[in-house]
Amino acid sequence: MTPVLSLRGATKRFGGLVAVDDLDFDVAEHDVVGLIGPNGSGKSTTLNLISGALQPTAGSIALNGSEIAGLPAQDIARRGIARTFQLVRPLASMTVLENVKAGAVFGHRRRWGRDAEAQAMRMLEKVGLSRRAQAPMGSLTYIDSKRVELARTLAGEPKVLLLDEWLAGLNPTELEQGIALIRSLRDEGRTIIIVEHVMDAIRSLCGRCVVMSSGAKIAEGTTEAVLSDPEVIRAYLGTDDA
């Protein structure tokens, strides 16, 4: 079976810095893959290459077997890759419902009018925010604006979801709710790449992990195996000491 998403030799250079170095990995359908590594190891840059926010310097990225590397972000979004941002990006002048509708109207599966509104409402229900649908975006708490962003990415029915530290900055109660929410997405059979520093979340959500350090892949495999790999432990401790 061909993987849904497949990276081969994906590379991104910023001047002299190689932020992503010859990266290979595959994501199969219904897989929830953790992309982990110390700060600055290239996780967000990898997501940026997949989503089209940045153009890869070299390498190939394929979605269901067709090449998407270097396409503009809007084309990749339409083909079915949706993402959240490490720093949440709400549409500040709009209501909560309109924020989510944006994903429903222009995403992978496009809707309009009542249909789009109904889809946006369903997504808000899923993330537990349907009661705030008409609220202005600026009135939401941090976690709620993260929920809206998640609902926005879901609204276009993407084939692959990229979550960049979606759980960062949440307090323990919110973290528990957040993990439960992503678990419900996993149980729906969605294909997700999760970039995360919260190891409990990675353990409970991801069957497989890819570990990066200084732009390169240093380990890949089941979450259990990867997290007990001495090289992975060294990579994490190394930056913690620095």
Partner: peptide, 24 residues
């Protein structure tokens, strides 16, 4: 129209507009 909605989104955040699939 969709055009009007698209331009409001890109006026708020062009990066988000591109990532929801708008040909900005």
């Amino acid at each position: 129209s969709r055009l009007g909605f698209a331009v409001r989104i890109l006026g708020d955040d062009e990066e988000v507009a591109r990532h929801v699939g708008i040909h900005t």
